[in-house]
Nucleic acid binder design. Structure first.
Length: 510
RNA sequence: GCCCCGUUCGUCUAGUUGGCCUAGGACGCAAGAUUUUCAUUCUUGAAAUCAGGGGUUCGAAUCCCCUACGGGGUACCA
């Protein structure tokens, strides 16, 4: 009974897509591709009050950036559309009614305010109110009211919701692909609203109807859905769709790096790492939340990071391309416990991926940054500069700090190094080195290196005495790649100018 | 409160049918090497009495029970 794998990612457009959601999507995608199946994008916008403009576009752009492609769904099309639940609004009503007819659901006329009051009363007695088999008889619904009363209420267009009627004393068994068997007793479950008074279904109804109609084979979603899974299983039963019910897999949650709890929007900016793939500006508050893309993360690295947060290959390999992930991904190797996001390891991953890029690729991304700094240089020069310093950075955004001296003369000199190294006689030595450098015809890292070394040895000096001050003159700080490489790149004249400038500026430092 | 899920180095995790685990790897951390500096890189090291306690067994991180802790759910939100 081989069924074609069809999985869906079903976000609600209530804001930017959380990185945990991206991971859920990634696992769905990997699973689908691994099994030659379809990966579908469906928008779950049954709560009209929470709709945020731009969120749908944001979701699609995010996956474009990550290189995760949907086979079907919003923006792509397919045979099972429409793929936005608000566009499928009319069809849910029939299904809710079907449940009404078959006795699996009932009308409830209690207003939110009334229920709120009851809840508060229960709270006073330290009890928890639940709309369930124990309380529904004393509430305002088609089970407790006479048929005439119900008809009258309906005729008067009294607002109502449709609730699921959980049978009593039933044990519901869930086969979770990650957690194994999970059992729950129906007496403890509440009669969830399936159809709201505004004419929209709730997630619970829409989700089951759509998954069934779209022929979804596996539901891979966050662990927060596990408690309502029994309801979903019962709905399949109520509709008589058990034979094609999808299999369930509930993913562990992504936790905040410090302390406890689910990773939330605020943690990112508090701890200095993005929780969203792309930068997001809140349309109302105008608050900006940082994104992986804008922070300099490479999409392939983000995928790799996410893939290993809650899943592992069982080998010691940690760097995987998307295709490699597809090849070896399996739900069985997903762990059960929540994973904390590790910023340091994320940086390391990005470093690995950055090193894999060609100098030309990195240069392309670096150019706009240089432009902002007001630096005007040709592509070839930047490419060489990138080659010199790329292994020292994890992000393109860190490049400037490691290479500014390849574009600008030092404006100041590190005081600590001056104090430690700029001894008496240094200006004289450097002046002599300027002459030596000047005399080099074919100025390149090797020739500069050879001549300066010869000078040092010839005068029975040691490296530290000369090289540190030379570096200070050229770079302004005690950092950077091989000094002769730097000098060769900036050129003989520039190097000499810088040394003379340093001599003039620092002078005799006694 | 009630229900559900979880618990191996600081972090991500290996450990899938109990014995090869004196618990392995990666990030981070420390030390050393290299170097003209800072980083990178390389080497080495510290780091989990497998949450705790009971069982079962010749033998348990691996099976069972209890407790603790953490997380999730408990909406006309998804």
């Amino acid at each position: 009974m081989e069924r074609k794998v069809r999985v869906r990612f079903a976000p609600s457009p209530t804001g930017p897509l959380h990185i945990g959601g991206v991971r859920t999507a990634l696992y769905n995608y990997l699973f689908a591709k691994k099994h030659g199946g379809d990966f579908i994008l469906r928008i779950e916008d049954t709560d009209q009050t929470r709709f945020v403009p731009g969120a749908e576009e944001y979701i699609i752009e995010s996956f474009n950036w990550l290189g995760i492609k949907f086979d079907e769904g919003l923006g792509i099309g397919g045979d099972y559309g429409p793929y936005r639940q608000s566009d499928r609004k009319t069809m849910y009503k029939e299904y809710a009614e079907e449940l009404l007819c078959s006795g699996w659901a009932y009308h409830a006329f209690d207003t939110p305010e009334e229920l709120d009051t009851i809840r508060k009363e229960f709270e006073k007695e330290k009890k928890n109110f639940q709309y369930d088999c124990n309380t529904r008889d004393s509430l305002k619904n088609s089970l407790s009211l006479s048929k005439e009363a119900v008809d009258r209420l309906l005729e008067n267009n009294t607002p109502y919701v449709i609730r699921f009627k959980f049978p009593k004393d039933t044990e519901i068994l869930i086969h979770d692909l990650i957690r194994g068997e999970v059992r729950m007793n129906s007496n403890l479950l509440d009669d969830k609203v399936l159809y709201k008074s505004d004419g929209m279904p709730t997630y619970h109804l829409a989700n089951i109807v759509d998954d069934h109609l779209m022929n979804i084979s596996h539901v891979i979603r966050g662990e927060e859905w596990l408690p309502s899974c029994p309801l979903h299983v019962m709905l399949y039963k109520a509709f008589g769709w058990e034979s094609t019910m999808p299999e369930f897999a509930h993913l562990p949650l992504l936790l905040k790096p410090d302390g406890n709890g689910k990773l939330s929007k605020r943690d990112g900016d508090r701890l200095g790492f993005p929780v969203f793939p792309l930068q997001w500006t809140d349309p109302i508050t105008k608050d900006i939340s940082s994104g992986y893309k804008e922070s300099g993360y490479i999409p392939e690295a983000v995928i790799n990071i996410l893939a290993l947060l809650g899943w592992n290959s069982g080998t010691e390999k940690e760097i995987f391309s998307l295709d490699e992930l597809i090849e070896i991904f399996s739900l069985e190797r997903i762990s059960k416990s929540g994973a904390k996001f590790d910023l340091e390891k994320a940086k390391w991953f990005n470093h690995q991926y950055l090193q894999l890029k060609s100098n030309a690729e990195i240069t392309n991304e670096y150019m706009p940054i240089l432009e902002k700094k007001g630096v005007e240089v040709c592509l070839e020069y930047v490419e060489e500069a990138v080659g010199l310093v790329k292994e020292r950075v994890s992000f393109v955004t860190e490049l400037w700090d490691q290479s500014f001296f390849l574009f600008l003369k030092p404006e100041s000199y590190d005081e600590k190094i001056i104090k430690k190294r700029w001894k008496e006689g240094v200006p004289q030595r450097l002046t002599e080195i300027v002459e030596i450098l000047n005399s080099i015809e074919d100025f390149n890292p090797q020739s500069a290196h050879d001549k300066v070394h010869a000078y040092i040895e010839g005068n029975e000096l040691n490296m530290g005495q000369i090289m540190n001050c030379l570096r200070l003159s050229i770079v302004g700080e005690g950092k950077g790649p091989d000094l002769f490489e730097i000098m060769a790149l900036i050129g003989k004249e520039e190097a000499i100018e810088r040394i003379n400038l340093a001599i003039a500026k620092i002078g005799g430092n006694e």
